[in-house]
């Protein structure tokens, strides 16, 4: 069997990160975690993960998106698939203030979108789907 996929969780809610870690480890993923955007970016630069699970609102309302755009601008990190997890439903994002509107209007930096609370089965199937769609690292 190939090496297990390396997943990086970036979320400031430690309880949620712990739960996701437990779920992913049970499914034999390699899991790393970070609790803010900066810490997450440092961990990405150290070792490029196969997939990032990213929260939207952390210290600032758009910290997750800011990190996602930062990664998209760097050719080295551009292709890392990102699954966004947020308790903002799509509807709110559409109807919310312009800082969300104009972000959604741009090229979407994220592969998939998961709504909180995270259902383990949905989480796992989403990860599997996104990973299978991502070309293997050279």
């Amino acid at each position: 069997m190939s090496t297990p996929a390396d997943i990086l969780i970036i979320d400031d809610d430690r309880d949620l990160v712990d739960s996701i870690e437990i779920i992913l480890q049970t499914e034999n993923y390699q899991v790393r975690s970070a609790f803010d955007g900066k810490d997450g970016y440092d961990k990405i630069t150290k070792k490029i993960p196969d997939l990032i699970l990213l929260d939207v609102m952390m210290a600032t309302d758009t910290e997750g998106f800011d990190l996602a755009y930062k990664l998209k601008e760097n050719p080295k990190y551009r292709d890392i698939p990102i699954v966004m997890i947020t308790s903002f439903t799509q509807k709110m994002a559409e109807e919310g203030p312009d800082r969300f509107q104009h972000i959604l209007g741009e090229a979407w930096p994220v592969s998939s979108f998961l709504e909180k609370p995270v259902d383990p089965e949905v989480l796992l199937s989403t990860l599997e789907k996104v990973l299978s769609e991502t070309p293997a690292k050279a």
């Binding site: 809610d13 309880d15 949620l16 712990d18 739960s19 996701i20 437990i22 779920i23 308790s87 909180k116 609370p117 995270v118 259902d119 383990p120």
Partner: peptide, 10 residues
Amino acid sequence: LNAIDTMLKT
């Protein structure tokens, strides 16, 4: 609530 919910599901 979301965190609790995810923990309970786990």
